[in-house]
Amino acid sequence: MLPLDIAFWVMAAVGVATALAVVMEKDIFRAALFLVVSFLVVAGIFVLLNAEFLAMVQVLVYVGAISILIIFAIMLTRNAHEGNPFNSFQLPALVLSTMMLAAIAFVAVNTEWHDWDQLGLQVLPGDSGEVFSATEQGIKNVFGNTTQVIARLLMRDFVLPMEAASVVLLAAVIGALALVRENEGEA
């Protein structure tokens, strides 16, 4: 097996185990710590998929910011004696999510994906390093230099969604401040 394959299978096993631990763990604080490990594993998966920029964004936003917010919220609202119980929908939820997983796996395995092998291009992770054509060279360059290409895409093809996303973030921050504000002085 290639080193990349070993890395993938190790990360997949750790990722599934920590994701299960997030849901199953009795202590919600430890569940949050497992969630951090799960975010880190996903960042590693992004690196395997040649998405280095997104791996860094994942570490900064999820591991750095979102998990800290979650841990703060847990510490502010902690009812340690309650633990982390299931509600009355546990069995239907298990059935539904199992069916969802079965459907996803069925579609993933049975669909004829149009991949690079069909065009005869050697550009996937783990393919041989030899470069045969201009397209292969270009694809390898794009995936070796994703930040630049993403910047061009965001600033040209996706400039309107990007502006909308910034407005959404601003509205969310103002909304969160308004929600948690102490409303003293108001009747």
């Binding site: 997030v22 539904l96 999510s97």
Partner: peptide, 10 residues
Amino acid sequence: GIIFSIGLYG
């Protein structure tokens, strides 16, 4: 899909 389904279950 596994990660998504575990999240859905939770």
